[in-house]
Design a protein around this nucleic acid. Structure first.
Lengths: 182, 182
DNA sequence: TGTAGCATGTAAGCCGTTACATGATTGA
DNA sequence: TCAATCATGTAACGGCTTACATGCTACA
């Protein structure tokens, strides 16, 4: 099988499988989705189920995963080749800068078309959303604890928490700045 | 013409045109791209030229923009309807939570497959990228000054700068944390 | 017995990119 | 006159989503 340049999302899923490597059972597409919802969504995306199956097919064709023989649902596990290629992908070649699509900032940019009041309530809503998101991630962080096995996941969760805190602080500042306008 | 639910990117471009509304000449697709590179890319995306023309066609079909009669390149300007619809889109309906695709965090998550050293140098590179990005944005911020006309753009630029600063601080912390590992 | 969760996929379609093609204008 | 920039598009394709279809299992 050839290697038709997999997408970052494919590698992200592969990473989740590697994480679960001690478990020789492998994971189903469905379980992979749960995992993605649990961690991946904070830093990347949580692909739709249909996308998960698509990526699993591609990973399978590239022989980066294999299906574990078992009755019932199809279980996937990473192959030697898969782990090897994941390592190569991870730390060789361009990592790239984060992509941000920030609908709140986009709207604030066009603030002239609105009123400080309306903008303020938009920021308020964003603060609520941030708090909810932060609480979710805190739940994840708590579940990770200080187990050595998951120390990198914990680091990234801490990163996320700090990011949400900083964003909340910045937005609160902007809201105040709006109050002193017009 | 009907109104087939335009994408956020279409509205973002429409916003750039509104920004330029005092200028009755309108803007060319090319100029729009310059503007997008200048501000939009920090909070949203800067679409490819081909995408810009596609969105302009859609905006034109929806009669949210019109072409200004002139010799030479086609110039677009926002219509009454366009500005009206932009306002509706901006502050009615779901704003949504930011979407982040963070390749560095994604890789750190799989840190087990690497070494603290390698991870550290990845973070180092990210800090450099952040500094470069920040410098670009600072350039934008300086150009905006304290003109009342662009005060919202200035607010959003300040937001971005604060975000980059915070990210740099967090990442520097993570790098130190890596040093005390293994 | 029916609803929620588990499990897997196909189809249609949008958003966006890269590659390619074309041609005008401007300045060194 | 040659290169850079201005200017506009088409074609092919990848990534991803929603909608739809299907069926099984556990449990209240």
């Amino acid at each position: 099988m050839v290697n038709p340049a997999l997408s970052p999302t494919a590698y992200a899923l592969l990473g989740l499988l590697v994480f679960d490597r001690e478990n020789p059972e492998g994971m189903t597409g469905y379980e992979l989705k749960q995992r993605a919802d649990f961690t991946l969504r904070y830093y990347w995306v949580s692909p739709a189920m249909s996308q998960i199956y698509t990526e699993l097919r591609k990973l399978s064709e590239a022989e980066f995963v294999e299906t574990a023989p078992s009755e019932g649902p199809t279980r996937y596990r990473v192959t030697e080749l898969g782990e090897e290629q994941l390592q190569t992908w991870l730390f060789h070649g361009e990592v790239g800068f984060p992509i941000l699509k920030h609908p709140v900032a986009l709207r604030l940019l066009m603030g002239r078309l609105s009123t400080p009041d309306q903008l303020g309530s938009m920021l308020e809503t964003h603060l609520d959303d941030l708090a909810a998101r932060r609480a979710d991630l805190q739940g994840v962080r708590d579940m990770l604890g200080d187990e050595h096995r998951v120390r990198y996941a914990a680091m990234v969760a801490d990163w996320g928490l700090a990011y949400y805190d900083s964003e909340a602080q910045i937005v609160a500042g902007l809201r105040e700045r709006l109050e002193g306008m017009d």
